[in-house]
Computed example of a mutant assay.
Amino acid sequence: MTKHQGRHFLNIPGPSPVPDRVLRAMDMPVIDHRSAEFAELGKAVFEGCQKIFKTKGPVIVFPSSGTGAWEAAIVNTLSPGDKVLMVETGHFATLWQQMAARWGIDVDFLPGDWR
């Protein structure tokens, strides 16, 4: 068994300290996703999102990592064989290029300086 010492950090892309109030909230029992309580919470969250994003339209939450959002953006806007220009600006740009290539996108990758 691995023993951890010190405070844990969230490392995406971090490290980012996780506030105690968040850690306490994570330790609460899970709300049944079919319950009235969950429906009320969901409604409040989506209404709050409308205020945050200053919209009266629906807000869609995409339950995934950032990489999942990249993939959704690629497959919902491009088709295999489409040609795109990408600029190398750092590690994430190279990952974006690799993902697009896996989906059959013809990537013209312009080398750049990561600084």
Rank of each mutant, 00 (worst) to 15 (best):
residue 2 T to P: 15
residue 2 T to K: 08
residue 3 K to H: 15
residue 3 K to C: 15
residue 4 H to E: 11
residue 4 H to G: 15
residue 5 Q to A: 11
residue 5 Q to S: 13
residue 6 G to I: 07
residue 6 G to W: 06
residue 7 R to E: 04
residue 8 H to Y: 06
residue 9 F to M: 02
residue 9 F to V: 04
residue 10 L to E: 07
residue 12 I to M: 13
residue 15 P to Y: 12
residue 15 P to K: 08
residue 16 S to V: 13
residue 17 P to L: 09
residue 20 D to F: 09
residue 20 D to L: 09
residue 21 R to E: 11
residue 22 V to F: 00
residue 23 L to I: 06
residue 23 L to N: 03
residue 24 R to M: 02
residue 24 R to A: 07
residue 24 R to W: 03
residue 25 A to V: 08
residue 27 D to V: 03
residue 27 D to N: 10
residue 29 P to E: 03
residue 31 I to K: 10
residue 31 I to F: 04
residue 32 D to Q: 07
residue 32 D to A: 13
residue 32 D to S: 11
residue 33 H to C: 14
residue 34 R to P: 13
residue 35 S to K: 11
residue 35 S to H: 08
residue 37 E to M: 07
residue 39 A to N: 08
residue 40 E to K: 15
residue 40 E to D: 14
residue 40 E to W: 09
residue 41 L to G: 13
residue 41 L to C: 13
residue 41 L to R: 15
residue 43 K to W: 10
residue 43 K to D: 14
residue 46 F to P: 04
residue 46 F to Y: 08
residue 46 F to N: 05
residue 47 E to A: 14
residue 47 E to D: 13
residue 49 C to W: 04
residue 51 K to T: 01
residue 51 K to A: 03
residue 51 K to V: 00
residue 53 F to Q: 04
residue 53 F to T: 00
residue 55 T to F: 02
residue 59 V to P: 00
residue 61 V to G: 10
residue 62 F to Y: 15
residue 63 P to T: 15
residue 65 S to T: 14
residue 65 S to A: 05
residue 66 G to A: 01
residue 66 G to C: 05
residue 66 G to M: 03
residue 70 W to N: 07
residue 74 I to G: 05
residue 74 I to E: 09
residue 75 V to A: 10
residue 76 N to M: 10
residue 78 L to I: 02
residue 79 S to M: 06
residue 79 S to T: 06
residue 79 S to D: 01
residue 80 P to G: 03
residue 80 P to E: 01
residue 80 P to Q: 08
residue 81 G to Q: 02
residue 82 D to Y: 09
residue 82 D to P: 04
residue 83 K to W: 10
residue 84 V to S: 13
residue 86 M to S: 09
residue 88 E to V: 00
residue 88 E to K: 04
residue 89 T to S: 05
residue 90 G to R: 04
residue 92 F to M: 02
residue 92 F to I: 01
residue 94 T to L: 03
residue 95 L to Q: 07
residue 96 W to D: 06
residue 96 W to P: 00
residue 100 A to D: 07
residue 101 A to P: 00
residue 103 W to H: 03
residue 104 G to E: 01
residue 104 G to L: 01
residue 105 I to M: 05
residue 107 V to Y: 12
residue 107 V to T: 14
residue 109 F to V: 03
residue 109 F to I: 02
residue 109 F to S: 03
residue 110 L to G: 01
residue 112 G to A: 05
residue 113 D to Q: 12
residue 114 W to Y: 13
